[in-house]
Amino acid sequence: MRNLIISAALVAASLFGVTAQAAEAPAAPYVELTNAVPVAVPGKIEVVELFWYGCPHCYAFEPVINPWVEKLPSDVNFVRIPALFGGPWDAHGQMFLTLQSMGVEHKVHAAVFEAIQKQHKKLVTPEEMAEFLATQGIDKDKFLATFNSFAIKGQMTKAKELAKKYEISGVPTLIVNGKYRFDVGSAGGAENALKLADKLVDQERAATKAAAN
């Protein structure tokens, strides 16, 4: 009987130990979305960055993420999406989508960030935006016409819908292949965020190859 009691105690202690270890295990640095979001380019692994020109953390992330994007392999598609939480977020997001639609976003993206973050320009009205962008070689009239177009309003709606599906609450946030969401803070810094993105991209690539075999 004594041996049975000792055995029971050891089993209980063992189970308790396992439970305690499980409770203390660190949480994953990313969230797997309940419902995967379709990617923009089927057949490619997608990495989305949600950002805001008015976010200092997004601005600080730029020198780290841009060189990374330039070295991405051909099977990875990088997409920037403006986070639209109202007010200046929407204004800046509409500016980004307008520049992107005009095919000039890559030419002035850094300058817009600098103007807002370093020169403290607000750039919240179409006129303010057009005046500043004119100094960067962007046609004012074309910008304003595009900014107020039906097509851009449609893109704004789409961006808001994607943000809801991604369930984001802040920026900068990365989404890998419409499945995994994490931010720079939860990943442990900018460099670690990109290492995590690489790891998840590799994971998705391996899963695709396994499914094909």
Rank of each mutant, 00 (worst) to 15 (best):
F147K: 01
K209L: 15
E105M: 07
T34M: 11
N35G: 09
M129V: 02
T19L: 15
A134D: 02
E46L: 05
I65T: 00
G154T: 06
A211F: 13
G103N: 01
H109V: 02
G103K: 03
P56F: 07
I175M: 11
Q100C: 00
G54K: 08
E161H: 15
A212H: 12
P73S: 02
A207S: 11
L196E: 09
S7P: 05
N213C: 12
K209T: 12
V104Y: 00
I5M: 12
E70Y: 08
T157E: 15
A111H: 04
A83N: 06
F85N: 11
H120G: 02
G154I: 07
E204P: 06
P126E: 04
S186A: 11
L99D: 00
A193C: 07
P82N: 06
I65G: 00
G93R: 06
A197V: 10
I65C: 02
A206H: 14
I6V: 13
N148S: 14
L144T: 03
Q94N: 08
V37D: 03
S74D: 11
F85P: 12
A159G: 14
A23R: 14
V104K: 00
G178Q: 05
I81Q: 09
V64G: 08
K160V: 10
P172R: 01
D141Y: 03
D75Q: 10
A210G: 15
S169I: 12
A9E: 05
T135N: 04
V31E: 09
A159T: 08
P42H: 08
E70M: 13
T98W: 00
K44C: 14
E24F: 14
E127P: 10
A193R: 08
A60S: 08
T98D: 00
L15Y: 06
S169M: 14
V64Q: 05
I138P: 11
A110C: 02
D183W: 01
N177L: 11
N148Y: 08
D202R: 14
P63Y: 07
V18E: 00
A145L: 04
K165T: 03
I65E: 03
K199Y: 15
P172Q: 04
A110G: 01
P42Q: 09
A36R: 15
E32I: 04
I5F: 15
G170I: 01
V184L: 03
V184M: 01
P42C: 11
K118I: 01
V176S: 05
V69K: 08
V64I: 05
V176Q: 07
P172S: 05
S186R: 13
T125E: 04
L162I: 10
S169P: 07
G86R: 07
E49V: 08
V69W: 10
A22F: 15
A83W: 07
G185R: 13
P82W: 09
C58L: 02
Y166V: 07
A163C: 12
M129K: 00
G93T: 03
E161V: 14
F182C: 07
A197M: 13
C55H: 03
G178C: 09
K122S: 12
L15V: 09
P38M: 09
V39K: 05
A111E: 01
F61I: 01
V184F: 02
V64C: 02
V64M: 06
V104G: 00
Y30W: 15
E46N: 06
E191K: 13
P56T: 00
G43A: 13
S14G: 12
V171H: 04
K195G: 09
I138Q: 07
W89P: 04
A190N: 11
D75N: 15
A187N: 10
L194R: 11
Q21T: 05
D141P: 02
K107W: 05
